[in-house]
Design a protein around this nucleic acid. Sequence first.
DNA 1: CGTCTTTGACCTGCGC
DNA 2: GCGCAGGTCAAAGACG
Length: 388
Amino acid sequence: MDGREEELKTTDRSNSMANSAVFSDEIPTNFPSFSGIFDMPSSCEDQKGSLGGFMDLLGIPDYAPSLFDFPQTTSSLMMMPPHHNQQRSLPAPASTSTVVAMPERESATTTNTTSEVLNSSTAPTTPNSSSISSSSNEAAANNNEGQMTKVQEEEADEQDPEKTQKQLKPKKKNQKRQREPRFAFMTKSEVDNLDDGYRWRKYGQKAVKNSPYPRSYYRCTTAGCGVKKRVERSSDDPSTVVTTYEGQHTHPSPITPRGTMGIAPLPHQSTGFISAAEASSNPFGVQQFLPHHHHYQQQQQQQQQQYAYMYQSSPSLNISSSTYGGGAGGGPFNPSSFSTSLLQERYNFEGPPSSSATNFLRDHGLLQDIVPQIRKEPKEEDHHHQHQ
DNA sequence: CGTCTTTGACCTGCGC
DNA sequence: GCGCAGGTCAAAGACG
């Protein structure tokens, strides 16, 4: 985890459809094969909302969207291609923002159980692989069926007066901590704590090893919602903020105190954007939609950025599109909800999409190719530690 | 007064 | 067992 930043390098491919890109040169070969640059229309008053909705389509929780909370006239979203080795490029134009999907290194607190799953599931997985570990289904099913997650259990514990006392020892004494699915976003931003539409309470801050910048810990303030996020600034690139989300919201995105997020869930099927089943397959809980761009017109944060979006699966997740349906299963990305027309309709992508989103979607098999990287590579992690 | 942040202490897991 | 690092708790303070 600590070495993650080293893997991220600002790059740019001279690409007819890309102004810039940020991606890793160490993307595992089995990383989801999706790529593309999506230019947001300069006339779009709500880039954030647009991309937010886009992230929704990806099955990414609604907190993701607000990362796109920038005033630029153009933004780009780039998903990493699977076998990406070439790159190097020019700094992104000021008017361009980039998002890159990347796996995040598993946290050191991953359980042994999940480690095994990870090892087994990551080895030969191809971008189009549809292998799914049973545990991933279970994990996803648990999430979607409202079963209490570990985090939620902790929340419940915290609400229990008897357990709120400083009796941390007996807490889950015999249970190994399990991690919620995680998403990590790398964001070029002046602001550490990006407004993502949810309300967060900071509950901790820790110095990060080999980094001058601390890591902040936040928890969703909504009762019963155990979603957490960590925010830290990259030591390599102080302008980059790494935001890691853990868990799934159990509630719609509230309107922020600053009135930046007027989000109301849409009737999925009526919009044609996404089916209810698809929505339910979102392991991040309530599928929130961004019905209108003007909901975000009040965005106030000034964030000049290149966004690097990183994806981290559940420790025990190995997902493919084939099992997303049915409501019980699911993963952070929902490929079936990701379509060209959808993109165009929802995000008003400017210009002929054929060269960008459309082709990308068609040629790369949509996001169904996404196979979350699940791994625990202590040695590699150590390796990165040593290099920091 | 409610909400949020700060911050030191504490807990947990892991590697040696 | 020990030390380290990540993660969490909760009291105290700040703020609107």
